[in-house]
């Protein structure tokens, strides 16, 4: 971290979801986190977006497949003959 380097909030904010979505390389991620930790406003923004992503994962109803469908599909496929 270079304390003399000016901090660019909009540059950091534009990378928040790239980081949360795992789209930054290790090097980019490190650079991003260094920048992020220099600004409490950016850090708060990051935590809010992180909470949003976690919220969706946690709250969205997961639908599990019925065992009958699994056996139906397997039966159909088992009976397909290949010329």
């Amino acid at each position: 971290m270079n304390p003399n380097k000016p901090h660019d909030c909009s540059g950091v904010i534009s990378r928040v979801f790239l980081s949360l979505d795992g789209e930054l390389s290790k090097e980019q991620e490190k650079e991003f986190l260094d920048e992020l930790n220099r600004c409490s406003w950016c850090l708060e923004h990051y935590h809010i977006e992180q909470a949003f992503k976690e919220f969706l994962c946690k709250k969205l109803n997961k639908k599990e497949v019925a065992p009958t469908l699994v056996s139906e599909i397997k039966d159909k496929i088992k009976n397909i003959s290949i010329e």
Binding site: H47, I48, A51, F52, E54, F55, L56, K59, L60, N61
Partner: peptide
């Protein structure tokens, strides 16, 4: 979304 009103939302509402 850390606010309790969101944390109290049930899956159906989010879905």
């Amino acid at each position: 979304l850390r606010h309790e009103i969101f944390q109290g939302m049930i899956g159906d509402e989010v879905t």
